[in-house]
Design a binder for these strands. Structure first.
Length: 531
RNA sequence: GCGCCCGUAGCUCAAUCGGAUAGAGCAUCGGCCUUCUAAGCCGAGGGUUGCAGGUUCGAUUCCUGCCGGGCGCGCCA
């Protein structure tokens, strides 16, 4: 679909007054609070004026006259505002004809036509234990970003990078071994830096019962991977692929990548170790890829992993990492450039900030242990967990308020949104009159047109989220939409005495429902038909 | 010491590549149910945007320097 504002924008872009290029500042989806400034606004006169040393109001006047001549049938009025804005107000017929498009095309109205092959890698928590609440946030944000990418028409693969080799795994297996000893009544010493968690006792017990003397390493890995999968399943998140680091190493992909770097002269030896000269790109210092004891670093396999992603033909890579990895971005990007993948926006790393829990009952304080992600889900449920994980920007620390998420009252924004679904469904159940094509002239209340305006801005919200990879904007939009709907509901009675007006208003409800359901669909949250 | 994130109403947060009167929700106070679900709506109070400069028509936003908070700076993964 070509979005409404794209169409209008295209309409206006043909208009260049005396070679002034007009850029459109508004609308954005926050518009209702600024509605007096019009449906579209531009500060172009100010910018042009400062360049040319002219009076901005005179330039605004020129633009107004030029626009007025060319798009009069779709524009109700054009205003000039100090110190040099031009504000356009759309005609009602333009707004309503677009509302009809939403009702006609339904969910397809919001879909984009990008077509990139995108690989999004997220969570990728070490398989040494169940997920933490911070991983939960990465999981939800990653899943929603993937939904957004898909809705914009891209081919998306969700991938989990499984660090199934290395010291952490060794420590895990050693710790499990000690737990087995413990169960067998022998002395038990969890190694320095090992894993103390209760779940390892479960692993040990399960191994003794069903392990049949097989590889403890294999058993631990499978067991814990299934724990992680179960946690993700509670959020309704699944991955297309679990990419094994071990396999990468066994298949000599790391050596291959190092060879490729060597060929181009980006590798050197010093003090018995092998270094990648990442400072030749945009890193602070060079990085070791093979240690002096001959083993490879984690970074080396990460180079190979990203090399592999590119060779699989993806033209866009997105990684979601925790804030402890931010220092890592430069070296991975450097490696990709060194390997010949120079496209500037090839790799985007989204840093997801940490999560803390807030609750009056001190459920998180149990003997200083970290609260497990699965406990959180059990407390608040899938939809509330998904919703609240998305209420802050990726780059902001999130304080998860468990009490609020559990509340079924009006200060819980998810309930506020769900209440819209319930009210709409309830009206449709009682209405039983079909939608009418010829409703345009029966929409005249300000609340009705406000609803239409706001609904038409939803694609802008989607685009904003899409380009910034910030799902929070959809949350904010839906909260605003809910607020507008409840106002509309109070002021304008849908099922009234005038059947023409009723039909017209049912059209608004229908379009609201399409927007709401599409938005919730992206967020992975179920609508509720009855409350 | 260096890098990243953050600092906005009593609390939790918004504020569109720099835009117009810095907005919501909670909490507080006051109104609205014989009518589509009051889990809602309407109204009031509440601000020197951490501090000090700079850039310009215009700064919460950009730059510099401080103050305060979080995280990271390995031949760990």
């Amino acid at each position: 679909m070509k979005f409404f504002y794209d169409k209008v924008s295209a309409l206006l872009q043909g208009i260049v007054s005396n070679n002034y290029k007009i850029t459109l500042d508004y609308p954005v989806w926050e518009l209702p609070s600024r509605q007096k400034f019009g449906d579209l606004s531009t500060a172009a006169p100010l910018k042009i004026a400062s360049k040319l040393g002219k009076n901005p109001l005179e330039i605004a006047q020129e633009i107004k006259e030029d626009l007025g001549k060319r798009v009069s049938e779709n524009i109700k009025k054009i205003e000039i505002a100090k110190p040099g804005f031009v504000n356009l107000f759309f005609s009602e017929s333009l707004l309503i004809s677009e509302l009809k498009e939403i009702i006609k095309y339904k969910q397809d109205y919001f879909k984009g036509n990008n077509n990139r092959k995108v690989l999004i890698e997220f969570v990728s928590a070490n398989p040494t234990g169940p997920l933490s609440i911070a991983h939960g946030r990465q999981a939800v944000v990653g899943d929603v970003i993937a939904n957004l990418l898909e809705a914009q028409g891209n081919q998306v693969k969700r991938e989990y990078y499984l660090n199934d080799q290395g010291r952490q795994i060794d420590l895990l297996v050693l710790s499990a071994k000690e737990r087995i000893k413990e169960i067998e009544g022998k002395e038990c010493h969890i190694p320095e830096g090992g894993y103390q968690g209760e779940y390892l006792k479960d692993v040990a017990r399960a191994y003794l019962k069903e392990g049949n003397g097989g590889s403890l390493y294999q058993f631990c890995l499978c067991y814990i991977q299934s724990l992680i999968k179960a946690d993700l399943d509670k959020l309704n998140i699944s991955f297309d692929d679990w990419f094994s680091q071990k396999k990468l190493i066994e298949e000599k992909k790391v050596e291959e990548a190092i060879e490729a770097l060597k060929e181009d002269g980006f590798v050197y030896e010093q003090e018995g170790a092998l270094w990648f000269s990442s400072t030749k790109f945009s890193d602070d210092k060079d990085r070791v890829i093979k240690k002096s004891d001959g083993t490879l670093t984690y970074f080396a396999s990460d180079i190979a992993y990203h090399y592999n992603k590119c060779r699989r033909g993806y033209d866009k890579l997105i990684n979601l990492w925790g804030p402890d990895h931010h220092g890592y971005i430069g070296r991975v990007k450097s490696a990709l450039k060194a390997l010949g993948y120079k496209r500037k926006d090839l790799l985007t790393v989204v840093i997801i900030q940490l999560v803390s829990l807030k609750s009056k009952q001190k459920m998180s304080k149990r003997a200083g242990k970290l609260i497990r992600f699965s406990e959180l889900i059990n407390e608040v449920g899938k939809d509330a967990a998904r919703f609240y994980y998305l209420t802050r920007k990726d780059s902001s620390h999130l304080d998860f308020d468990i009490d609020l998420a559990q509340k079924s009252s009006f200060d819980n924004p998810l309930y506020y949104i769900h209440y819209v679904c319930a009210r709409i469904e309830s009206i449709f159940k009682k209405a039983n009159s079909p939608l009418d094509e010829e409703f345009s002239k029966y929409l005249e209340e300000p609340q009705e047109l406000d609803m239409v305006r706001f609904l038409l801005q939803f694609p802008l919200c989607l685009q904003k989220s899409y380009y910034s990879l910030e799902p929070v904007f959809i949350i904010e939009y839906l909260k605003e939409l809910a607020s507008m709907f409840h106002k509309f509901y109070e002021k304008v009675r849908v099922l009234g005495d005038d059947p023409k007006k009723t039909k017209a208003r049912l059209n608004i409800l229908q379009a609201t429902k399409e927007v709401l359901y599409f938005g919730l669909g992206i967020l992975g949250i179920e609508p509720i038909e009855e409350m």
